[in-house]
Amino acid sequence: MKPPVFAYHDPRSVEEAVGLLGRLENTRLLAGGQSLMPMLNMRFVFPDHVIDLNRIETLAGIVQDAETIRIGAMTRQRDIADSALVRDRLPLLTEALAHVGHRQTRNRGTIGGSLCHLDPAAELVAAAANLDATIEIAGPDGVRTLSMAAFPRGFMTPAIEPDEMVTAVRMPLPQRGHGFSFMEFARRHGDFAIVSVAVLLVLAPDRRIARASITLGGVGAVPLRMVEAEALLVGHEPGAALFERAAETCRAIDALEDAQVPGWYRRQLAGVLMARALATARARAEGVST
């Protein structure tokens, strides 16, 4: 289990990296390496060129402006998990990160790497989808942005071109006092989720649900925003019966199947977790400690 032969490049700037991407064939970007390196060691991939982004200092960092938090693509998961700013304004992201891998993998793994790897079971992918993130993508013609809804082109395939790279993720700030919950079911602590659920609830002054964002991870080939469930909730007072109806929408999902986990299990689990996450998010929105 040793990596195959490749040429190694470690550009110092985004421009240099984009230049390499434009010039070279069969490239792989190396971010935190927590997915690419196992694939190299197992010889599942044979890139001619590995472009290491770890020496591009401008790619890491967390900054807030009026309406968003911008997280550089090479920001380590550990630093996002530790960020007081993120904890304050995007607590769902902090909660999601507690489920991501282990201390050693979070120390190295990056948000950009996770989003580009686009494992359907990855917590950061589900959280970004739920938080209506915008992806900044650098290419030969400069920087473009893509909504997280449009980012997955298909199973583990982001909508970026071979000469492009993700440089940052921008998350709009939800209203303060919103309710949130990130729940998942994994076989062991730190494993990829079989199913994850991200829920964000904003209550209006009359206690009705003003905004609902619900995302399922691990169930479909890409993270699923449950728009039908969201529509069911908005305008109504939260309650167990309503949440059960929202959870029922999971029954119709065409869920992933694999050797260990059948589709019916994922659907059933999605419904159970969604009802639980909605209840937690509601309690938090109402200021009840959970």
Binding site: P38, R188, H189, G190, D191, F192, A259
Partner: peptide, 24 residues
């Protein structure tokens, strides 16, 4: 230790074959 119907092993990494860790 899972195999498919062609006797191909399908749990061939420690991410697929689950050993107990401290949290379990």
């Amino acid at each position: 230790m899972a195999y498919d119907e062609n006797a191909q092993p399908v749990t061939t990494t420690l991410a697929e074959y689950l050993l107990v860790t401290a949290t379990e």
